[in-house]
């Protein structure tokens, strides 16, 4: 519950900072170019401030949040849904970032099978399944993108000519 509140506040502050940045930078543009940024930025700042305030205020434990017609059980479930295992989330974000970095360095053709193999092995799949799945996935994408659609895939920093 606390985690959810803290996370909501951080996300609201992110939006607030974004809208402030949008508005401040727009002041350097011509009148015409800053018109819409201001129309969007100012209400954005106001709404984000309200959201930060709403999430920051403490609610007395005896006065539970109104959930309309929904039952207490559903309300509890919703609160649980907002909790994040930050360690696991960071690990998953790391996996996505790793994919981007691998593509940047090694290109698609090397990354596709090696990333699949690596991910599956770390997630405790068998060697046979990992190699088979990586191979089939690579072959399917190679045939589709390179043979059939003639799309030139990024070769990576190392293999770039």
């Amino acid at each position: 519950m606390k985690d959810k509140k803290r996370g909501e506040i951080i996300l609201s502050i992110f939006f607030l900072a974004f809208f402030i940045m949008l508005t401040v930078i727009s002041l350097g543009y011509s009148a015409k170019s800053r018109r819409l940024p201001l129309i969007v930025g100012i209400p954005g700042i106001a709404l984000a401030c309200v959201e930060v305030y709403r999430r920051s205020i403490k609610r007395p434990p005896s006065a539970p949040r109104r959930k309309g017609a929904r039952g207490a059980h559903e309300a509890d479930e919703e609160d649980d849904a907002g909790t994040v295992d930050f360690r696991k989330a960071a690990a998953m974000i790391g996996w996505v970032a790793l994919l981007v970095v691998m593509i940047w360095i090694f290109g698609f053709l090397v990354t596709i099978p090696s990333y699949t193999l690596l991910f599956m092995k770390v997630r405790k799949e068998s060697w046979l399944a990992s190699i088979l799945f990586a191979g089939i996935g690579f072959a399917a994408l190679y045939v589709l993108f390179i043979v059939a659609l003639h799309i030139e895939l990024y070769p990576g920093l190392i293999f770039k000519q």
């Binding site: 996996w95 994919l99 698609f108």
Partner: peptide, 19 residues
């Protein structure tokens, strides 16, 4: 299973995004 689906979809998405 997620261990099969995640790399497949992520690669699929990366290809789509890049192309």
């Amino acid at each position: 299973r997620s261990s099969l689906l995640i790399p497949l979809i992520l690669i699929f998405v990366a290809l789509g995004s890049f192309t």
